[in-house]
């Protein structure tokens, strides 16, 4: 990937509290339009990593650059490229939504008409335009969450960092948040998204870093991660007729590793069910079996995490 599209680059991040290593050599990068997920359980080091990326926390070692500029607690210029959405609500309850946006907008250098325009745009996007003059302490939880994210988008950052934005959020708001992130990514924004929800990482992220005990255990696309740990897709075909012949024919299909007769059908193991499924079904039919149903079970990141760490994500 060329240097012109690299938005975030962090290398060798270390942070210790006494003898405990909170972050131990974490490094990853994010390119323009890419959503990168840090997936790990609570206490894995996600927030500590993000805090160092944003320049909130002094680091023991490592480098972080955003759009090629170094960032640290005292190196603040590159912070203007980042939109940061903390895990907890970070809004002033005794100020209105508009006052909250105006305050943070000014801190990011927005003034005059530009500030007004961006404030209005964010209020529209977050659906808070009608309540702009109400103090946020009067808002529902979902409205506060939307404003919390809206503040991060106010200054049109190149990199949006969301730290577990759906924790404690109702399903409707959660979906709205995930939709927003997908849309922003589609519009070309780079996104760093931390979560301990496997489904969110699978849905949103182009690449995922699996983090545990302060270390990135593995990194890549979902498929790369699955392959990395040797996990395979499982296809169960419910069939009638000459099932034994169908199983034998299935074994000959390119990409099929195993095909065994089972009660009422055939169990097949393959590296990529989506790719082989058409030719597999054709071969079974040609062998004289009638396909009554197909069930594809793809290995998920939960399984990968379990394989890599020996524990479940929610342990």
């Amino acid at each position: 990937m060329g240097g012109t599209t690299r938005v975030l680059d962090c290398r060798g991040l270390h942070k210790s509290y006494g003898d405990r290593k909170a972050v131990d050599g974490v490094g990853f990068h994010i390119d323009l339009g890419e959503t990168y997920g840090l997936l790990g359980p609570n206490g894995a080091g996600k927030t500590t990593t993000i805090s160092m990326v944003c320049g909130l926390l002094t680091r023991d070692a490592g480098e972080v650059t955003v759009i090629g500029e170094p960032i640290d607690v005292g190196q603040i210029h590159a912070k203007r490229w980042i939109g940061y959405v903390p895990q907890d609500l970070a809004i002033y309850p005794d100020l209105t939504a508009e006052e909250n946006l105006a305050f943070f907008g000014r801190l990011y250098g927005l003034t005059g008409k530009k500030l007004k325009a961006r404030t209005n745009a964010v209020l529209e996007v977050t659906g808070l335009a009608d309540r702009r003059d109400d103090k946020t302490e009067e808002y529902s939880g979902g409205m506060k969450r939307r404003l919390n994210i809206g503040i991060g988008l106010l200054h049109e950052p190149r990199l949006l960092i969301l730290d577990e934005p759906t924790v404690g959020v109702d399903p409707q708001s959660r979906n709205a948040i995930l939709d927003s992130v997908e849309q922003l990514s589609g519009e070309g924004m780079a996104v760093l998204y931390t979560t301990h929800y496997m489904e969110e990482a699978e849905r949103l992220c182009d690449r995922v870093g699996i983090i545990d005990q302060g270390q990135i255990k593995a990194e890549g696309t979902r498929r790369e991660l699955v392959e990395l740990v040797g996990q395979r897709d499982r296809v169960r075909v419910v069939a009638e007729g000459d099932v034994d012949a169908a199983a034998a024919a299935a074994r000959l299909v390119d990409g099929v590793e195993e095909a065994n007769r089972s009660d009422g059908g055939i169990d097949i193991l393959t590296n990529d069910a989506r790719v082989i499924l058409p030719s597999l079904l054709r071969s079974i039919a040609d062998a004289g079996a009638s396909v009554k149903g197909v069930d594809v079970v793809e290995p998920d990141l939960e399984a990968v995490f379990l394989h890599l760490t020996g524990k479940a994500l929610r342990d």
Binding site: L56, K79, I82, F104, L107
Partner: peptide, 12 residues
């Protein structure tokens, strides 16, 4: 109230 990290994350 959680606003301090957001202040520090700003270019300030």
């Amino acid at each position: 109230q959680g606003t301090l990290p957001r202040l520090v994350a700003a270019p300030v």
